[in-house]
Amino acid sequence: MALYNLTINDVKTQLEVEPDMPLLWALRDILGLVGTKYGCGIALCGACTVHVNDKPMRACTVRVSDLVGKSVRTIEGLATSTTLHPLQQAWIAADVPQCGYCQSGQIMAAAALLKSNPNPSDADIDSAMAGNYCRCGTYNRIRSAIHSAAKAARLSYDATQRDVGQERKV
């Protein structure tokens, strides 16, 4: 076991875990952030997608020890304390989820896409989302929710309202 310092959802966090502990299990079992899901453990289903320094990563294969000093955002940290992310709003408006299990990962993959490409085409979306499996087959609603969120975000979203600078130790 060793101590690792990283930032999770804007909170400076110290984790004492084995060096090979994947981020997924640190989030779920150590921090209680269970929104990030286990689906395959080999980075092929996308259910565990989080952001590391704003880039989409599969939390099941990235190790906590490789994230020292980096900033992780999970589905729990996507909304601000007062406002849902446009994707979350669009997801609810389009009634995307069926079982819902993969949706945290879908939303995080989509959020990373919109960060780098605020106006994606269908093909951009398909290619960015191809690593995220949905067993229930909600792909078409996901695609249209991404389009409507992109549109809404271009009109309004202000992402600067986050609570920052808190500390936490586990």
Binding site: D29, G35, K37, P97, G100, S104, I107
Partner: peptide, 28 residues
């Protein structure tokens, strides 16, 4: 057309599923 009653919880990562269960003193 009514949006699913759990959609807010599902899209914000709230614990819903069996696998999300956490209890004090729980082992794995």
């Amino acid at each position: 057309a009514i949006s699913g009653v759990d959609n807010l919880a599902l899209t914000t990562g709230l614990a819903m599923f069996g696998i999300d269960t956490q209890l004090p003193g729980m082992l794995y």
